[in-house]
Computed example of a mutant assay.
Amino acid sequence: MTEHFDPELVKGLTESVLPKGLSVAARNPRQMPMATEPQESVAVKGAVPSRLSEFHAGRAAARSAMVGLGLPPRPVPMGPDRAPIWPDGLTGSISHSEGACVAAVGEIRDWAGIGVDLEEATGLDPLLVAEICTKSEQIWLGTQPASERNLLAKLIFSAKEAAYKAQYSITGSLFGFQTLELVIDRDESRFQAVFLTAQGGIPAGSILAGSYVYAAGLLVTGVTVRQSEREQLLGA
């Protein structure tokens, strides 16, 4: 059975991988009522109960994060591309799983992109490693202790998810896991996601920097792009 995590723990871990100035909130999907904002509910009409609970908990966390910024809670519907449609003036990221849901929200005047990913700290299925990890990443994994490789592969997966979310609000680009290559600093619990090919105005070789934390059975990764960094990322 999937473990359900204390929302305050999830909130604190997520805050630890993000810079100051963002509002973070978390929810336990098991505790969320089924009702939510009508503009949001249409996206999951007919979904199975577990999916409904995760979706509603993630949206509830997003609205709570808005309140944390001193703003009224507003709906976050899903767009045709399945990405959240943030209220005017805001941007953010939502991550949900069976055990926890978290959202980070910031004002668009300060933040161009925010990416958060939340995973249970279990190893990545070895059958997925070749799909998720580049050849260089697989070589790096081979240099790590054998007992840690699957968990580190999960870190690569999660970090790429966070980086993808952060860039998507800037470029709207869709791409696969092989587009990014991770350089991980285990001493500092930080990583760099390097673009191997140009995407949506971001030149090849550009870097998104992020942080990660393992604690209490969870893995959380975070990537942000400030508005002051946007032009540099786009090679302008």
Results as ranks from 00 to 15, higher is better:
Val220Glu: 02
Leu69His: 11
Phe195Asp: 03
Val10Gly: 03
Val183Met: 14
Val194Cys: 13
Leu71Ile: 09
Asp6Met: 03
Pro80Ala: 06
Cys133Glu: 07
Leu124Gly: 03
Ala146Ile: 14
Glu119Arg: 02
Ala159Leu: 09
Leu52Met: 15
Pro38Ser: 04
Pro73Glu: 11
Leu219Met: 06
Ser211Asn: 11
Thr171Gln: 10
Arg82Asp: 00
His96Phe: 01
Arg63Gln: 13
Pro87Leu: 09
Leu124Glu: 04
Lys135Asn: 14
Pro7Gln: 05
Ile156Gly: 05
Val42Met: 03
Ser64Gln: 14
Ser41His: 00
Ala60Leu: 14
Leu196Met: 13
Glu37Leu: 10
Cys133Arg: 12
Glu54Thr: 05
Tyr212Ala: 04
Gly92Leu: 10
Ala61Gly: 05
Pro87Ile: 10
Val67Pro: 05
Gly142Tyr: 12
Thr143Lys: 15
Met66Ser: 11
Ser95Gln: 05
Leu196Gly: 13
Val223Ile: 06
Leu127Gln: 07
His4Gly: 01
Leu124Asp: 05
Phe5Pro: 01
Pro203Val: 13
Asp187Pro: 00
Leu182Trp: 12
Pro75Cys: 10
Ala130Tyr: 04
Leu218Cys: 08
Thr122Cys: 04
Cys133Tyr: 09
Val48Lys: 08
Gly99His: 04
Leu22His: 11
Ala198Asn: 11
Val44Ser: 05
Glu40Pro: 04
Asp81Val: 00
Gln232Tyr: 02
Pro33Val: 05
Gln192Glu: 15
Tyr214Gln: 06
Ala130Gly: 03
Met34Pro: 00
Pro73Met: 07
Leu219Phe: 09
Arg74Gln: 15
Gly106Ala: 14
Glu131Lys: 10
Phe55Tyr: 14
Gly99Asn: 06
Ile139Gln: 15
Ser169Val: 06
His56Pro: 00
Leu151Met: 10
Ala166Trp: 13
Glu120Asn: 04
Ala215Met: 04
Arg226Met: 02
Gln167Ile: 12
Met66Asn: 11
Ser50Gly: 08
Thr221Gln: 09
Val67Cys: 12
Leu233Cys: 12
Pro145Thr: 08
Ser158Phe: 08
Phe5Arg: 02
Ser169Ile: 00
Ala166Tyr: 13
Ala61Val: 02
Thr2Arg: 03
Thr122Tyr: 01
Thr91Arg: 10
Ser158Asp: 10
Ala153Val: 12
Ala209Gln: 15
Lys20Pro: 00
Thr221Asp: 07
Ala153Trp: 06
His96Thr: 00
Gly113His: 10
Ala204Ile: 12
Ala216Ile: 01
Lys45Gln: 15
Gln199His: 05
Lys160Val: 05
Phe175Trp: 14
Thr197Ser: 14
Gly89His: 07
Gly70Gln: 07
Gly222Lys: 10
Val116Ser: 07
Phe157Ser: 11
Met66His: 11
Lys135Arg: 15
Phe55Trp: 01
Arg109Trp: 02
Leu218Lys: 06
Ala62Thr: 10
Thr36Asp: 11
Ala35His: 13
Asp81Ile: 00
Pro29Lys: 11
Ser16Asp: 08
Phe195Glu: 04
Gln167Phe: 08
Ala215Phe: 02
Thr36Val: 08
Glu15Tyr: 04
Pro84Val: 01
Gly172Pro: 11
Thr134Asp: 11
Val44Gly: 03
Pro145Phe: 08
Leu174Glu: 12
Ala26Gln: 01
